[in-house]
């Protein structure tokens, strides 16, 4: 393990890179503070990028994914 402050995050994974950027665009419009990260190895995902955000945002993000019809793979909580 490398030296880094860890905490529990909400992670969204996608089948394609395009969906990760749909999420980034939507997050910008909604004012979410998260960002794109390399997909953590704990999750095997179709796409190498994932969205990482505050876990408290889970409901809002789920709603945003559904409202904007962004195809995602999983929504999980992970300590990174």
């Amino acid at each position: 393990m490398i030296k880094r402050n860890k905490k529990e995050w909400l992670i969204v994974t996608f089948h394609t890179t395009v969906a990760a950027f749909q999420m980034e665009r939507a997050a910008k419009d909604m004012g979410f503070g998260g960002r794109i990260i390399p997909v953590p190895r704990e999750i095997s995902a179709g796409c190498g990028l994932a969205w990482r955000d505050e876990k408290e945002k889970q409901a809002e993000i789920k709603k945003c994914l559904d409202d904007k019809c962004i195809e995602y793979e999983q929504l999980v909580l992970l300590t990174l």
């Binding site: 393990m1 490398i2 880094r4 990260i37 390399p38 953590p40 190895r41 704990e42």
Partner: peptide, 23 residues
């Protein structure tokens, strides 16, 4: 060690501004 390469690459960029490729 056995750290996820993606997390190392992310830390290198976020904390030090160093661009590498992981995966």
């Amino acid at each position: 060690a056995n750290e996820d390469a993606g997390m190392v690459s992310d830390a290198l960029y976020q904390d030090f501004g160093i661009c590498t490729r992981a995966g």
